[in-house]
């Protein structure tokens, strides 16, 4: 999907240059929701404001919406067909395969130490074993990430202050006192 988008937005339409496009994609992947919808909304908004984002989003949703409705109608009309049943059973098994592959590929990208592995196992256990609502689990991990950032940010600031203190004492102690 992304190569197609890049082709349209960067090369054909020239709306954004390649760096801007990469920036926008990375932000939209971080935001919650459907990445394609985020991208359409973002690009529409940047180009033509709120109306632009509404139009772009409808553009990206509408084809899927129509295709799925047609398929759902088709399903309702063919009941209990051995071939269709077989096709669906094959597809279900293959779909599970895709999910397993997604886990393997994501794990090899994201796992960078014991904490990330522990976080993945914890979120899995909370949802799959302890049946905690997925929304709460997501909120928990967002809060953990934010808290971690605040704490490590403070540590850096403290370290900076200490360094500044030392420098102050070393070089020009009088200036600060005069200001005070």
């Amino acid at each position: 999907m992304l190569p197609l988008l890049r082709q349209t937005i960067v090369e054909d339409k020239g709306w954004f240059d390649n760096d801007e496009f990469i920036d926008i994609v990375s932000v939209c992947q971080g935001l919650p929701g459907v990445v394609a919808v985020n991208l359409a909304t973002f690009i529409g908004f940047r180009k033509r404001g709120l109306l632009g984002s509404v139009v772009a989003t409808f553009g990206v949703i509408l084809p899927s919406f129509i295709i799925i409705l047609l398929i759902a109608r088709g399903f309702a009309s063919i009941d209990d067909n051995s071939y269709l049943g077989g096709a669906m059973a094959g597809l279900r098994a293959a779909a599970l395969g895709l999910v397993v592959i997604a886990i393997i590929q994501l794990a090899s990208k994201v796992f960078d130490g014991p904490w990330s592995v522990l976080a993945a196992i914890t979120s899995f256990a909370l949802i799959a074993l302890f049946k905690v609502n997925t929304v709460y689990v997501i909120i928990i991990f967002i809060v953990i990430g934010a808290t971690n950032a605040v704490i490590s940010g403070r540590r850096i600031k403290k370290a900076d202050i200490k360094k500044a203190d030392i420098k102050e004492k070393d070089s020009e102690p009088s200036v600060e006192r005069e200001v005070k």
Binding site: G30, I103, A120, T122, F124, I127, V137, A149, V150
Partner: peptide, 18 residues
């Protein structure tokens, strides 16, 4: 920080989907 907190948890989410 929020985004890096949610990233490894995503693997757990997909595992639960599996």
């Amino acid at each position: 920080g929020m985004l890096s907190g949610i990233k490894p948890a995503t693997i757990g989410l997909i595992g639960a989907a599996a």
